[in-house]
């Protein structure tokens, strides 16, 4: 895209984020060597999977100039219905079907968001607030509230899929979950889509100036439909992976997850006004959040402090961004 001069590199958000990550890792590792253990590192990677897939979807929505807080609800709905259905038919087939089912449910729900937004020109925050609550309520009121613990075998097998496994001297086992590959593949796919396809550039265009996008010939409505359905589909995928990895289908799960995911995407450099951001930045933002959450204990900070620390990080990061953009503005404007 741009010929990245060395100068440009230092200006890029992603670069500083990466530096921050490295510095933090080194710090935590210095305080507690256990940080570098395979067990810890693998577990950190595992934690990024579900949040990361969510974040990829939210990233798309934010770039298009909107926002979405319904995705955890959609994820839970999708995986729960899928699991319930599969259990009822005593499913033992390929893992693909559960994925497809959950993804489709998510996509359909996302489509509803998009239709409501386009047809009635409603604010995305309010619409996704409404659909998210409605779906959560519907699920728990009419489908069930029981935690299902006998997951279909294919899902259990999936949770055992590792791309690296080793038994240590003391008999414990460390394994690197294969689900991480799914995150990687999705990330690469979306990165390519956003950078190399007209569709992706169109999403940036809408976020930049919707009217101009229309004039240039983009079908704004169709692009929106895509973005929200795709996010819904990703939510479905994230949901089924989540439920598989913890081997439980709990309809009360993932409550409040939207806040952390949005924080991750914003930390990653996407602007709330739309048109800016990158997949790399988003993943780095997720990594940062996961790192902080996972490392507090290692450093001796009780996990109680998680929220406080994340909140402070978010405030500092957004404060810095706001301060920096004001400095570069016409100097002197009060």
């Amino acid at each position: 895209m741009n010929t990245l001069s060395k100068n440009r590199l230092f200006q890029r958000n992603e670069f500083w984020l990466l530096c921050l990550l490295i510095v933090l890792s080194l710090t935590v590792g210095a305080v507690n060597g256990a940080f570098w253990s395979a067990n810890n590192l693998f577990s950190l990677f595992k934690s990024t999977i579900v949040t990361g897939i969510f974040a990829l979807g939210v990233f798309l929505v934010i770039v298009s100039g909107g926002i979405d807080i319904s995705f955890p609800a959609f994820a839970v709905f999708s995986f729960y219905i899928t699991v319930k259905f599969l259990l009822s038919i005593k499913y033992t087939g390929t893992i693909l079907l559960p994925f497809l089912m959950s993804m489709t449910f998510g996509a359909c729900l996302g489509l509803v968001n998009a239709l409501l937004l386009s047809s009635f020109q409603l604010a995305p925050l309010i619409v996704t607030l409404g659909t998210g609550s409605a779906v959560t309520g519907f699920l728990r009121a009419f489908v069930g509230t029981a935690t299902l613990s006998n997951l279909p075998q294919p899902l259990i097998d999936f949770s055992r899929w590792n791309i690296y496994k080793k038994t240590l001297a003391d008999g414990s086992i460390v394994s690197f979950s294969g689900a991480f590959l799914i995150l990687l593949v999705l990330a690469i796919l979306i990165h390519v889509m956003m950078k190399r396809t007209t569709l992706g550039r169109g999403i940036y265009a809408i976020g930049g100036d919707e009217v101009a996008a229309k004039r240039v010939g983009f079908n704004v409505k169709r692009l929106r439909l895509f973005v929200y359905s795709f996010t819904g589909a990703l939510a479905g995928i994230a949901g089924i992976i989540h439920c598989s990895l913890i081997r439980l289908a709990n309809p009360r799960d993932l409550e409040g997850a939207e806040m952390e995911v949005i924080a991750a995407v914003v930390l990653g450099g996407a602007s709330l006004t739309g048109g800016k951001g990158s997949v790399a930045g988003t993943l780095l933002g997720v990594a940062l959040i996961v790192l902080i959450k996972g490392s507090l204990i290692l450093v001796g900070v009780p996990s109680d402090w998680q929220k406080v620390v994340i909140g402070l990080v978010l405030i500092t990061a957004t404060g810095l961004t706001a301060w920096r953009s004001r400095r570069s503005d016409e100097g002197g404007r009060a």
């Binding site: 409501l116 009635f120 409603l122 309010i126 619409v127 607030l129 409404g130 659909t131 998210g132 609550s133 409605a134 779906v135 959560t136 309520g137 519907f138 699920l139 728990r140 009121a141 009419f142 509230t145």
Partner: peptide, 15 residues
């Protein structure tokens, strides 16, 4: 939960 469901729909409807 049914309440939440109704409120969600309510919000959308009002908008």
């Amino acid at each position: 939960f049914a309440k939440e469901f109704v409120w969600g729909l309510f919000l959308l409807l009002i908008m």
